[in-house]
Design a protein around this nucleic acid. Structure first.
Length: 424
DNA sequence: TATCCACCGGAAGATGGGGTAT
DNA sequence: ATACCCCATCTTCCGGTGGATA
């Protein structure tokens, strides 16, 4: 899974514990987004920077015709004032789920203007508890409630009363729903789906469109939720190289100055990303980064293959430093422990080794060390933030454990950053 | 093929810090 | 001041896990 990249000046015969940011699945790795120049667009090559971000909704969504048509058809009952099915979009990050949802909803809103239909979109990475989702739903209907400290039931009943007031069809899109389910276990989902059954008014209804990265999140719901929430599924496969190329072409056409990019550079990015993940967001980030590198390159006024290559290799130390700086204290100590072990030559320190080193560090700070269970969890958190990379080691009679196989910076650089930030 | 190691990771409960209402 | 609420973080408990080894 992890391919090694040699650190500058290191022994080429030995892999160094230095992961390239394009692997992994962490936050840094999946969205490098390093704005090299603080200028806002209008460079020699970049015409419109906004187009080169994943929040931009393009007019066309290459390769997603089937999903768009299917979603459209599933929403058709709204035209006849009937309740649509619940839906679930599944697929990995950057496969166009959110884009398709927004694309279709925008069209439907125009199509159904004036009808008693309301579309709501909520991202559960921000509203990641049942209470916060309800808080936003209340606000969406103009009901002001405190952001915390209030009984959940009150918020829920507020929301319910919205439907009892008269005819109303609501389509609620819950993006990154798996994050909410992970915490809440589907209790909110259960309540929301049951809501329809409780309504006396048959011309009111709530339809839920859940968007999730993990395909098995439905299976992981608790039993009673699974029996009441039975969505139709729409699957989003990873993009292939051809589709990614179509996406990049369109973004280049809209976001770059005409004639300042080579087709080969786009193909290079598309092929690399298709091989690695099929994540369109990653491809778009790389396009922007490559364009920025090309603008900085004095010897050319064009985005060429070498800029695409450079973008693929780019490590943004500043970005990683920001992540490290915002790490809680014990996370830093765990990271320091792992970095020290790697630096001292242990190529694959396990959880046990990291824990004993960490404990010593914590005691040096006159703090009671967290439990092994917690540190095990912290290692996973560091991994998902792209700071370290982990592998499972199946050691037979010597037991199974996670091992740290690398980090976003060379261990000595990591230690230097940590001590600069005051952990020592 | 049974056992064992050194953890893994889910579940549930404790803790403490934030809030609101009376 | 008191009695509720919400919520993130951490601890405790405990049934796995999978290949090496006896």
């Amino acid at each position: 899974m992890v391919t090694w990249r040699l650190a500058p000046g290191s022994d080429p015969s030995r892999p160094s514990p230095y992961i390239s940011p394009r692997i992994g699945r962490g936050r840094i790795t999946s969205r490098p987004s390093p704005y090299i120049s603080p200028r806002i667009g209008r460079g020699r090559i970049i015409r419109n920077r906004k187009v080169l971000t994943d929040s931009y909704l393009p007019p066309h969504l290459p390769g997603r015709d089937f999903q768009i048509t299917t979603f459209d058809e599933y929403l058709e009952p709204l035209l006849y004032d009937e309740q649509p099915f619940d839906l679930a979009f599944t697929g990995k990050t950057g496969t166009g789920k959110t884009a398709v949802a927004r694309h279709v909803l925008v069209r439907k809103m125009e199509e159904l203007a004036g009808a008693p239909v309301k579309f709501l979109y909520l991202n559960c990475s921000q509203a990641n508890t049942a209470y916060r989702v309800m808080y936003h739903l209340n606000r969406a209907f103009g009901i002001l409630v405190p952001p915390s400290g209030y009984p959940f039931d009150v918020l829920f009943n507020n929301f319910k009363s919205v439907f009892e007031g008269g005819r109303l069809r609501v389509v609620l899109v819950l993006d990154e729903l798996d994050l909410l389910v992970k915490r809440d276990g589907g209790r909110l989902l259960y309540g929301l789906t049951r809501l329809n059954g409780d309504l006396i008014e048959r011309s009111s209804s709530l339809t839920i469109v859940g968007i999730a990265n993990t395909p098995d999140f439905l299976e992981r719901l608790e039993e009673r939720t699974r029996s009441s929430f039975k969505p139709k599924r729409i699957y989003f496969p990873p993009y292939g190289a051809g589709e990614l190329l179509d996406i990049l072409r369109e973004r280049a056409k809209l976001g770059l100055v005409e004639g300042t990019w080579s087709e080969e550079a786009l193909s290079h990015i598309a092929a690399a990303v298709a091989r690695e993940s099929g994540d369109a967001r990653r491809a778009i980030d790389l396009l922007r980064l490559a364009a920025e590198l090309a603008e900085k390159d004095g010897s050319s006024a064009r985005l060429e293959v070498r800029h695409a290559e450079a973008a693929l290799d780019y490590v943004d130390e500043g970005e990683i430093e920001i992540v490290i700086r915002t790490l809680p204290f014990h996370h830093r100590l765990v990271l320091q422990a792992a970095a020290e072990l790697l630096h001292r030559g242990d190529p694959r320190p396990g959880t046990g080794a990291v824990y004993s080193r960490y404990s010593a560090l914590a005691r040096r700070w006159q703090m009671r060390p967290l439990t092994l269970r917690r540190v095990s969890g912290i290692l996973r958190e560091l991994e998902s933030q792209g700071v370290i990379s982990l592998e499972m080691s199946y050691g037979g009679a010597r037991g199974n454990t996670k091992v740290v196989t690398g980090m976003a910076l060379r261990p000595d650089r990591m230690l230097a950053k940590l001590s600069k930030l005051g952990v020592r």
